[in-house]
Design a protein around this nucleic acid. Sequence first.
DNA 1: TATGAATGAGGGTTCATTCAT
DNA 2: GATGAATGAACCCTCATTCAT
Lengths: 206, 206, 206, 206
Amino acid sequence: MRKKRDGEETKMRVLQAAEEAFAEKGYAGTSLKAVSDRSGISVGLILHHFSTKEALYHEVLKGLSAGYFRVLTEAGQGMAGHSFQETAAEVLRRTFEFWRNDTTHHRISLWSYLENRSTQTDAETQLTTGLAEIITKMQAAGSIDPSVSPFVFLSMIIGPIQFWMRYRQQFMEQLNLKETSEELDAIFLDQFLRVTEKIMKSEELR
Amino acid sequence: MRKKRDGEETKMRVLQAAEEAFAEKGYAGTSLKAVSDRSGISVGLILHHFSTKEALYHEVLKGLSAGYFRVLTEAGQGMAGHSFQETAAEVLRRTFEFWRNDTTHHRISLWSYLENRSTQTDAETQLTTGLAEIITKMQAAGSIDPSVSPFVFLSMIIGPIQFWMRYRQQFMEQLNLKETSEELDAIFLDQFLRVTEKIMKSEELR
Amino acid sequence: MRKKRDGEETKMRVLQAAEEAFAEKGYAGTSLKAVSDRSGISVGLILHHFSTKEALYHEVLKGLSAGYFRVLTEAGQGMAGHSFQETAAEVLRRTFEFWRNDTTHHRISLWSYLENRSTQTDAETQLTTGLAEIITKMQAAGSIDPSVSPFVFLSMIIGPIQFWMRYRQQFMEQLNLKETSEELDAIFLDQFLRVTEKIMKSEELR
Amino acid sequence: MRKKRDGEETKMRVLQAAEEAFAEKGYAGTSLKAVSDRSGISVGLILHHFSTKEALYHEVLKGLSAGYFRVLTEAGQGMAGHSFQETAAEVLRRTFEFWRNDTTHHRISLWSYLENRSTQTDAETQLTTGLAEIITKMQAAGSIDPSVSPFVFLSMIIGPIQFWMRYRQQFMEQLNLKETSEELDAIFLDQFLRVTEKIMKSEELR
DNA sequence: TATGAATGAGGGTTCATTCAT
DNA sequence: GATGAATGAACCCTCATTCAT
């Protein structure tokens, strides 16, 4: 039946299935059998291509970086010619949108953190240093408050977004919010942008 | 020697060991054998007391709430007679201190989230609703900006703290920060408080 | 069915089966499944008692020493009051008899040697040093040739016996010997004793 | 580069690698992967040439005979014109030297014996029958004791040598011998020759 | 209450072999 | 002749759970 000897396609299918599985259950919770069932590739063949479960995992991690960094660079390119407010808002909006759409990366990154498997994915590193650079530049240009360290800004930008994504559901239940998930996202983003702008604006610019 | 038929003490010892183990490796990554080794209680006896690994896990989750909620209530009690700024700062400071010292709860909560084992721990529910209440009250009293939803404030308070705790180490490495971990914590807290205060302050009070 | 909870007996049964299996197929060639089938003890239970295939193997090795050393000590005790010839002959005869009856030890020892698993069994060490001591004593007493090193004597005593045991069958086929295996053993032992005596006898005693 | 379609060379390379591997780890302990890694020839190709692991093993065994028998014939040819003592000593010396230098044959032969894979290699058969013939001839010529069966002589010649080769190392450790391995070999050979000569010498010739 | 014997399922990995290319 | 994709069985070991003592 499945005798098409196409190693590359097989690998892709395995990686896809593995990414989903690892995101769902983490490293320890994902058996090769599970990946096999998901992908339709036999366990033996998976090991033939990736030699080890560990290696497969790292391959998955590597693959995650790919589309990830675009968020920032694209937003950054749009900077030229726009005012500070517009640019900053755009960066935040894209970051939010990324976390919102991201299904696997966030979870795999958390798993990796807990399972002590890799301190950080390449994507995270890029995001962190990328954002930090932008912030520093803007501080130099006087557009944002230079008295606050970039890493504090960073925490105050990504932290709330991640937190929101994770607890949104619980908030809805506990605080008895009536809006739909999408509506809440819109409200959150709107208010978050407004407040953050207030934070970042340089004192002198007031 | 250690054959005292003391069921209660045995259970405590198991719970303690289990909490550490689950915090470290999560549910899937923790074997009863591991808990047995850590606690010195035989696997058989563990199951005698908790009947199931799953049950043990839930017992651990239940136990986590204990010291957790005090953070807020204590800070809240101190509120009386102090100015808004002082109170808010105290709440934030204590929240920060809590996350800083917390070793097991945060991790177990993350594990639970990822492993889909329980939507939230009791402690988290209490923290969330508790903080939300305080915020609402302060908004009613006009001390903080009423145009921003409590859940946005919440995300912007706890989100950055959690984020900082998790990524502090990577920041140090990537951004080449020279300070010690303690110094950075102090800097972070200081700047975070200053900025957050700015956010929360009601427009009218400016 | 098999619910008699007798750990000791189970262990004995496993050890017995393992000894046979290892003797037959060596470490690499013996699967725990094979030991399980031979002993009627489930693989899981085998591991429960011995934790590891490796550990089981070492346990088997340890057990081999037990009855082994008796050969020499018993022969040695008979020494008192007998002439040199009689004593030496007795030691050789017992050594021969030991190798002749030994089924598992010799093979396991060979396997260990080839598989690089343990340089030597305790039994072998005891036999070697024991025989060497006897030889040295006799040399001191002037009963056997002191100009030949003990280790050469040792090689010339055990070497031929082991060799004979191993190749007897092939000899019979290739050299077209008509006698039965038992008859050949008798012939070998008789001639071997006669010749060896001649070697060992001190020149002065001639 | 190395895609020369040279079947013969490929086969040689595989055989060489396989011989080493089998000598080291035996049949069960050697995987085709191991042979592949050693030889640089893919597993698929190995099986293309030898069809089966079993077949490869037998091919290796066949190849072992080659240089082996020369030991004796060369020594035998030197016989002419020399005295008995000189000839016998020469045969023993060469036999010893052979075992001393032999690395793979001895081990593979042992493996085969234990693994019940082939009763004996061709080389062994030749050595055995060859030596037996020489002994018989010499007995007929009256140069060596005719009252001792050839197979006893054989055992007493090869047995000690093999034994020495295998246990030399342990002897050094246990008996606390200070000499180097080479010095001990020299001592052993010297004393062994002296003693053996004494054995073989016909009574009448004394 | 407490131990540890016993089970059976499943996990990652190795391996000989087949077969399409 | 040569590669490596693909398979399926076997291997050692871990684990949650049951049960006799």
